[in-house]
Each structure stands twice: as structure tokens, then as C-alpha cells.
């Protein structure tokens, strides 16, 4: 999901049309909604432009399509500015663009022992404090599942990886690695031991994924799978702020097809309410993890078909959890 600031300038046809039927202004919002977008805020302005809207759309292509569709009516010109959350912008501008890792030493046995020793401090205590209670469903789906496998989950909170780690059986958890954003967890030159890339490689067994770097960024994941280590990836690519699952990136499918390994979908529910994106405070609450059946792809499956199948599997888990929820449970966040 992306945010866009859309500045509109009406031409004389547009001014005439709105003068004749002022409700046209609100009709545009409905049109955009019909094309998978959402007008979050909208103002009429004086000066250089006539309107300014903040629009949420699945991606650049979608907003492009909306703009062309609207402009084709010949009433207005649009200036579309891709927008970024201010806090993220400030963070990105201030930090180095150089990243570190991956760290192949992370799978050596002395490091495994150190990770086990750190587990309560770095993972378990936070999961215990935040998830009250933590319910795990579908563990039987992992019976007989051999390593290596790829685990995928929906992503709405920094706690997701800790919870995913906690809900897997020990045999899979011990060999579990996480793909994590290089531009967040592997930045060079940050202060503090636990902010270092090597710390994450050690304590959480993460490895860096560089956004938009294509196949090359998966090399370490392929190596881990060759070494029979599990890989967990959040296929949405970033934490969702809307409560809705975003479209999946292609990386997981590329990896699963190249290595012929099964993909296990895990749906996590309740974490967005506990620690949403952009907050540091944790408000404890109930969390449910539903582990789905492993998905095995036929060798000739295309990347887009595999990605679609994974999305459908995650969506099915989400609906199953919703159906199970008691009527007095929290409202669906879609």
C-alpha cells in the first residue's frame, strides 16, 4: 500500500461541470474506491490548484491507472506525488545508506548456543509480556514436516517475528532464520550493541533483505536452505498499517520454486492492536497464531501463480480465525 498526494487543477470544462453538479467532487472519491484506492482526506484549495487529496492505493501502477482514468474525462489535470510517512523519511535521511551482513557464522554451533542463552532475554520475555494469552492453533499441520521449510506470516508489528518464533515446535524453531529489512536492521554506523546488524544475526538469526535488489538479495536465503535451515519471510515486505494484508512480494515464491521447499502459512492475529507500526508502547492483549498446512508447489508453477496461491492460503486462514471468533470478540479490522 502506498500513499499519494494528488493535486488537481480543473480546466474550464471541469469548472463548468462542477458548477452544474457540485456533487461530482464527491463522486470522484467513489470512482477511486471502485479502483481499489481510497481517498483518505480531501480539500478544496485556492491558488495554484483546485483540490488536494490524500489517496491510498495498492501501488504506483494502480494510482497511475486512476489518474489516467480520471484525466480521460477531460475535466482536470492531476499532479500525483508519491508520499512517505514523515517519521520514516526522517529516519531514512539521517542514516547511512551502507548496510552490513549477511553473516554466515550465524548457523555455527557456538552461535546457536549463544542464541539459545539469549532467547529468554531477547524473545520469550517480550512474547510473555505482550501476548495475554497466546493461542496456537494448527500445530498438527507441522507433524512430519522435514527441514528446510519456508514460513510466511502476515506482518503488522515488530512483535510478529518474536511470536512466529515462539509458536513453532522446537525442532523447527532451533533452525529458524528471518529475512529482515536491510535498511532497518543492518544499517552501518548506528549506535548501541543491539542496533547492530551482527546482533540481529546472532540473537534473532535474521539476515538482511535489500528492498528492490531482486534475486541477488535472496542468495543468503538460498544458502541457508541448502544448509537445511528454515527461513521465515513476511511476504508483504513491510508492516501493514491498515489491518489489511498488502499484496505479496515475489521473493518467497522465487525461493520456494528454486529450492523446491514447502511454504508454511501462519496467520497472526491481535499483534497490530498490541504494538502497531510507529509505536513503542506495548498494550498486552490476546494473540492467536493459526498454522496452516504446508503448501508444496509443482516444479513448473509460475512465480505469480505461487504468490497468488500463498496469498489465498493466508486469506483462508484469516477467514477461518474470523469464523472461530466469538461474537463479543474484537471487530474485524478491514
Amino acid at each position: 500500500m502506498g500513499f499519494y498526494v494528488v493535486l488537481t487543477k480543473l480546466n474550464s470544462d471541469g469548472v463548468r461541470a462542477i458548477h452544474a453538479n457540485p456533487d461530482l467532487v464527491s463522486a470522484v472519491a467513489a470512482d477511486i474506491q471502485a479502483m481499489d484506492g481510497k481517498v483518505l482526506e480531501q480539500w478544496a484549495v485556492l491558488g495554484k490548484y483546485d483540490f488536494c487529496a490524500l489517496v491510498e492505493a495498492p501501488n504506483d501502477a494502480a494510482i497511475h491507472r486512476m489518474a489516467v482514468e480520471q484525466e480521460s474525462r477531460g475535466r482536470a489535470r492531476f499532479t500525483v506525488l508519491p508520499a512517505m510517512d514523515m517519521a520514516l523519511y526522517v529516519r531514512l535521511m539521517g542514516q547511512s545508506t551502507e548496510t552490513t551482513g549477511p553473516h554466515p557464522w550465524q548457523i555455527r554451533w557456538p552461535v546457536q548456543i549463544a542464541r539459545r542463552a539469549l532467547r529468554n532475554y531477547w524473545i520469550d520475555q517480550h512474547v510473555r509480556a505482550a501476548c495475554q494469552p497466546l493461542t496456537v492453533l494448527g500445530r498438527e499441520n507441522l507433524d512430519g514436516l522435514a527441514r528446510p521449510a519456508i514460513f510466511i506470516a502476515n506482518h503488522s508489528s515488530h512483535l510478529d517475528s518474536l511470536v512466529l518464533h515462539s509458536v513453532l515446535p522446537a525442532a523447527h524453531r532451533r533452525f529458524l532464520t528471518f529475512g529482515s529489512a536491510a535498511d532497518r536492521f543492518y544499517i552501518k554506523g548506528r549506535k548501541g550493541m543491539t542496533k547492530q546488524g551482527w546482533w540481529n544475526s546472532l540473537a534473532m538469526a535474521t539476515f538482511p533483505i535489500r528492498r528492490g535488489a531482486g534475486r541477488a538479495t535472496l542468495a543468503h536465503a538460498e544458502w541457508l536452505i541448502d544448509k537445511r535451515w528454515n527461513v521465515a519471510i513476511f511476504p508483504e515486505g513491510t508492516r501493514s498499517t491498515t489491518g489489511k494484508m498488502s499484496t505479496f512480494k515475489a521473493g518467497v515464491a522465487i525461493l520456494a520454486l528454486a529450492k523446491g521447499v514447502p511454504v508454511v502459512p501462519v496467520f497472526l492475529e491481535g499483534l497490530r492492536e498490541i504494538r502497531p507500526k510507529g509505536t513503542r508502547d506495548v498494550a498486552p492483549g490476546p494473540v492467536t497464531a493459526l498454522i496452516g498446512a504446508p503448501i508444496r508447489f509443482a516444479p513448473a508453477t509460475s512465480v505469480s501463480d505461487a504468490t497468488y496461491a500463498m496469498y489465498q492460503a493466508m486469506e483462508a486462514l484469516r477467514l477461518r480465525l474470523r469464523a472461530q471468533r466469538r461474537p463479543d470478540g474484537p471487530e474485524e479490522a478491514t
Binding site: V25, A44, V45, L46, F51
Partner: peptide, 17 residues
Amino acid sequence: ITTLPAMSVETFVNAIK
């Protein structure tokens, strides 16, 4: 900075009507 006075779309629509 370019400063543009803004109003909510409802206010705008009502103003025209």
C-alpha cells in the same frame, strides 16, 4: 513554501450549491 488556503470538500460543495 507555497501556501494555499484549503476548505473541506463538503464546505466547498455546499458553498457552490
